[in-house]
Design a protein around this nucleic acid. Structure first.
Lengths: 150, 150
DNA sequence: CAGAAACCGTTGCAAAAACAACTATTATAG
DNA sequence: CTATAATAGTTGTTTTTGCAACGGTTTCTG
């Protein structure tokens, strides 16, 4: 009981450190820490909508809108209207973004190596799966609360 | 490899959900999400300095200074000069903070129950320890980078 | 002991993020 | 078919966070 209560704090600290790390490694690059994660989602699957990125990152949709606008302005993505749904965009990576991928992967790999250093393969698999379940339940919980309030 | 890369994203999502959850539960209370965590550190050990809280939470020290000022202004803590070191404060919980403790514990317990739901006791212990190691390495890594830059 | 370095805290400023109100489009219900 | 609800995105405003420069203490070093 006592021990579990700290999980959240460890995550919070790690999260702040990740952001600090990314800010250091992105010095001189016209990308913020969260924009890099944004782009990573598009690398995994190009042509998503802001809504889809929003669901995955769980940032406020206003924040996502501004990130997308900034990424477009800086030439990392283009926003095509989705012919299937005129409300939504297709967010598409530009060549500039594709060229930046190797750098980004290297930076994320460096961070990942810090996270996994000295941990068993078994522990890591377990950790990742458990954290996914936890993240999913967290999203669900907040959704319930917010729906209940309307 | 592929799987581990997502650890950070799961943590990030969970972290944002925790903040959203706390904001909901703290409606009408003159405390922010991070201020509650701040107070929790004082509950664990009263009379710490801002620097000590800073080390544990890993927020920027300016942020900690403003949190402490706000908590004092709203009557949750008092700041006594430390007779052993005139640079530092002793941050002390007031009665108002102590009265609020049960509410706070209940809120955090509610959140914790979301995190641990359906997980084995074994998994949880493992998770907490692994996350502590990860958080510690993260802090260390960022410290190295920032020292290297000076 | 004097000067330099490290430490603790504050403040101005800028970036990041949340929230709410809004427009426009699509989907659903009666 | 129309009215209502839900969806996708934008924008104004406020709060939160990070960074850097600063002032006053303490500690270290020669």
């Amino acid at each position: 009981m006592r021990e579990n209560n700290c999980l959240g704090e460890h995550m919070a600290v790690t999260q702040r450190m990740l952001n600090a790390f990314l800010r250091c490694r992105l010095e001189g690059v016209d990308l913020s820490a969260s924009q890099v994660i944004f782009l990573m989602h598009l690398y995994k699957q190009d042509g998503q909508s802001q809504e889809e990125i929003n669901k995955k990152m769980q940032y406020d949709k206003g924040v996502i809108a501004r990130m997308a606008a900034a990424l477009e302005k800086n030439g990392y993505i283009s926003r095509k209207n989705n012919p299937m749904d005129n409300r939504a965009y297709l967010l598409l990576l530009t060549q500039k973004a594709i060229d930046f991928l190797p750098t980004m992967v290297e930076i994320l790999k460096e961070w990942n190596s810090v996270l996994v250093e000295g941990e068993d393969e078994e522990t890591l698999i377990m950790l990742d799966r458990a954290m996914k379940r936890i993240a999913d339940r967290s999203v669900e919980k907040v959704k319930e609360i917010k729906n209940g309030k309307k």
